[in-house]
Amino acid sequence: MSVSGALARRRSIRAFADRPVDPALVRDLIVRAGRAPSGGNLQPWHVDLVHGAAMARLKARMEARMADAPMGEGAEYAVYPADMAERFDARRKGVGRAMYAALGIGREDAARRREVFADNFRFFGAPMGLFVSVERGHGPPQWADCGMFLQSLMLLLVEAGLDSCPQEAWAIWPRTIGDFVSIPAERILFTGLAIGYRNEDAAVNRFAVDRADPGEWLTEHVE
């Protein structure tokens, strides 16, 4: 598969098939993704891969934690800017509306919306997941490096016939996840990533996700 093909195929999957994933394959892809570029070759990402019995334990723990604290523990960083420009907020809200419409869930159905959000913490049924953490003293350039690692991994997963969903939603559970995978105090939880095979029949995996017109963000300088 070409890089272009992998980019076209990749999307955030929110319903995974009940199909096992080869751990050796995923470990190999993670190692390959480590070839992603990073400023000064710092390679600032740290990855914790969860599957098998550990995944079952994590999902059970999350069910208990969500019962106690439905809105999580509070993220240690702002996932979105507090004062976000309207065009960005419109995109965020637009993809949410499209997702809930695909699921047939109206704005008034708060209970079902909460359940959809809670499914983040079941990895959307994926059999494997990982967490990325980064040194607390590292800044935006190193966080961007982690993003390049994740993009590299997601495209490699597509090439291997697998799917994924990057999940910054996990940031609201820093203590629970930090305890589960033993993230030391000097690192901060950045994001999670669900890994598996997409459920091709799930409507939530098929709704259209718009992209901004390049004229909004591309400026060409020729003279």
Rank of each mutant, 00 (worst) to 15 (best):
M1T: 13
S4M: 13
G5A: 15
L7P: 02
R10S: 10
R11Y: 13
S12K: 08
A15L: 05
F16W: 12
A17G: 08
D18K: 14
D18W: 01
R19W: 01
R19G: 01
V21C: 06
D22N: 13
A24W: 00
A24N: 08
D28H: 12
G34R: 04
R35Y: 07
G39V: 12
Q43H: 04
W45S: 03
W45I: 06
A54Q: 15
A56E: 15
R61Y: 00
D68K: 13
M71A: 14
G72E: 05
G74Y: 12
G74H: 11
E76Y: 05
Y80R: 10
P81R: 12
D83Q: 14
M84F: 09
M84P: 02
E86P: 03
R87Y: 11
F88I: 07
A90Y: 00
R92H: 09
M99F: 09
Y100P: 01
L103T: 02
I105H: 02
E108A: 14
E108P: 00
D109A: 00
A110Y: 04
R113H: 01
R113F: 01
R114G: 14
V116F: 03
A118G: 07
R122Y: 05
F123M: 15
F124L: 10
A126G: 09
P127H: 11
V132N: 01
E135A: 15
E135M: 07
R136K: 15
G137K: 06
G137Y: 02
H138Q: 14
G139W: 06
P140A: 14
W143P: 00
W143K: 09
A144Q: 05
G147C: 09
M148D: 00
M148S: 10
M148A: 15
M148C: 15
F149K: 04
F149D: 08
Q151Y: 01
Q151M: 12
Q151I: 03
L156Q: 11
L157C: 10
V158S: 10
G161A: 10
L162T: 06
S164V: 07
P166K: 06
Q167D: 08
W170R: 06
W173L: 15
W173D: 01
R175K: 14
E186T: 10
R187Y: 06
F190I: 12
T191N: 10
L193Q: 07
L193T: 06
L193G: 03
A194H: 12
I195H: 10
I195A: 10
Y197P: 00
A203H: 03
A208Y: 09
V209K: 13
R211Y: 07
G215W: 07
E216D: 15
E216A: 14
W217H: 15
H221C: 06
V222I: 13
